[in-house]
Design a protein around this nucleic acid. Structure first.
Lengths: 113, 113
DNA sequence: TACATACCTGCAAATATATGCAGATGTAAC
DNA sequence: GTTACATCTGCATATATTTGCAGGTATGTA
């Protein structure tokens, strides 16, 4: 098997898109179906502008699709399979107690500093 | 289910670590067992210093473990499950023909500019 | 001891990403 | 037409990541 550099590069782009806490929660939220931006912003407790920017990123990469209903923009996952990666990843992180603890400690340290 | 912000943050860290073409190939390479740095550098066609920096990153995050044999440093995956994510991801990207094509086009564009 | 090998670390420059804010667009209600 | 609402875009700044290079450490060999 060759090392398939272009495929690795493409996959890195996909992972990079997922590798943000807001976008992880966003994709997890869309797992159950489409949603408008304001509702999403409330559920995720994010400023709508910021959410819009995340959505714009995911839209450009064709990871989400948009549909309009009046002045609402309804978003849905274009590749629901990716939501499965996130579900698995969250389970993995939760199961890995010591490392998760390390994460919590990092958080605490941030509060201290 | 709450939104589990700290867990999402932790998972984002993990994805960020994976989200680099060199590191994707590196993890894929270690999938079959431990390997020393020089051999890895040859297989992946990377400058050893660069590879060493990637390994250092993964080591800090405890995604790889190290063992020494004389002057060789042998690395192995600490969480082989993650190699599975990459195998799946590579298959996903390869299957998604149009997007992969878009990736190739981007590459071409970079050569043009 | 001197030298080569195998890796690592620190630093600095280039590049990429994240974020807030100000202003723009499109739609609907009055 | 005017106003309010839902969302988007552009821009500037802050922060993080990537990369090469110079120099360092530890181990084996002559």
């Amino acid at each position: 098997m060759p090392h398939r550099v272009p495929v690795a590069r493409e996959l890195a782009e996909v992972f990079k898109l997922i590798a943000h806490p807001d976008r992880i929660r966003l994709i997890e939220e869309l797992r159950t179906g489409e949603c408008d931006v304001t509702t999403l912003a409330e559920k995720l407790n994010l400023p709508p502008t910021r959410l819009s920017q995340h959505l714009s990123l995911l839209r450009t990469a064709r990871m989400v699709e948009e549909r309009r209903n009046g002045r609402q923009h309804l978003y849905r996952l274009a590749q629901p399979q990716i939501a499965g990666w996130i579900t698995d990843g969250l389970a993995f992180v939760e199961a890995r107690a010591p490392a998760a603890l390390a994460g919590d400690l990092r958080e605490v340290r941030e509060l201290w500093s």
